[in-house]
Design a protein around this nucleic acid. Structure first.
Lengths: 203, 203
DNA sequence: TGTTTGATTGAACGTTTAGTTAATTTATTT
DNA sequence: AAATAAATTAACTAAACGTTCAATCAAACA
């Protein structure tokens, strides 16, 4: 008896509002009061669903990292070869397409928290490792298929993400989207070389 | 006439105190009042030397980035060959030795600000480019010396820092110093390979 | 010595912060 | 219709925030 709980859905709504605000104004300028204002609800309601601000931030990070994992998801058609899928994924990783979907500012803002919050550090570590593993599995599938030859798939996946993370780190400091794409384009061939592929079609 | 200005030296003292505090507590928890408290001075004095908190942060970033540039400075003896110096620098870059000197937490914390503050973005960009240029010049010197063969020194320097930045990004999520050194050790040979060097002495 | 100028302080400003508590509204069940 | 439990709000607190202002103190020079 009594009223039905809206906890999960309401928490999600609050996190989404928090995400939007933090993306625009920065994490340090995103207060409970401001989130409440943007939703036209009472600040106390946010405290009601997340007991503390800290808990809300954890929720925000989970939400953000889930989005981040999405950089790996490319529409897969079952009739495609493993190699085709692999190349599509790499193409996707080195494009700024998913930039609209995902916000780097928040990603780095929360990353800074990993140094003082062990829970957050683990969250990041888990996601980064998952991504490496996913890519490694994609490489393995291509190897089994016989379409590429790679001795240590996980190593290649690891190196790929090192280059990728390093490249995006730098590229975020460029203002011109054209420059960004150029720079990213420079590094894609280096990753393909790791896979023993010498440029497919550069267009 | 009148009293001598202590502006420069006092500003420096305040920035150093700010740096220490931000390193320990995080940038978002570093207030003017707390800095003043740590120095046993009045908060107003900090405002006196930096008109606003924003100005203080700019000072902090300049100071921090100057330290960051220090990762490149390895004691150079004039009797060493260009190749020897180059290898020492790379060794230094891939060691965590300079971690005591420099704090990553603050580096990433301030990096997050680049997304909303163009001045800060430029500060970072300039330093990253300077480091790439310095490494490129070191490579060029070795090429001229005839001790290594590299077609495009700047490209190699650029790629080196991509790998380095990507590696440190990941490595910061590891807790065990041993693991950190292992991981970094994995990537040093890859950079040396770019220089056409196949492991000098791994010990 | 008196004047000038910067160093430094202390008190107060209004605003914002995260969080508490108590009351009220709303939906659901018996 | 009464009971119940969760949703939501209103009012509030205490602390912290960056900043302002006026006053005082200390050094340098005329």
């Amino acid at each position: 008896m009594g009223r039905k709980s809206m906890k999960e859905s309401r928490q999600k709504e609050i996190i989404v509002a928090c995400y939007k605000l933090a993306k625009k104004e920065g994490l340090e300028n995103t207060s409970i009061a401001k989130i409440a204002q943007s939703m036209n609800i009472n600040p106390s309601l946010i405290i009601h669903y997340f007991q503390t601000r800290e808990e809300l931030i954890y929720g925000l990070i989970d939400y953000m990292l889930a989005k981040y994992k999405g950089i790996f998801n490319v529409p897969k058609r079952s009739n495609k070869s493993a190699r085709e899928i692999l190349l599509e994924v790499i193409d996707h990783l080195f494009s700024k397409k998913w930039n609209a979907l995902f916000d780097d500012s928040l990603f780095y803002g929360c990353f800074a928290l990993t140094f003082r919050d062990h829970k957050i550090k683990i969250k990041y570590k888990v996601v980064l490792d998952e991504l490496r593993k996913s890519l490694a599995e994609l490489i393995e599938a291509s190897v089994k298929e016989g379409s590429i030859q790679v001795a240590h798939p996980y190593d290649v996946a690891d190196t790929t993400f090192m280059i990728l993370d390093g490249a995006y780190f730098y590229v975020n400091l460029l203002k011109d989207p054209k420059q960004i794409n150029e720079k990213l384009g420079e590094f894609k061939p280096k990753v393909l070389a790791l896979l023993g592929i010498c440029e497919p079609n550069t267009n």
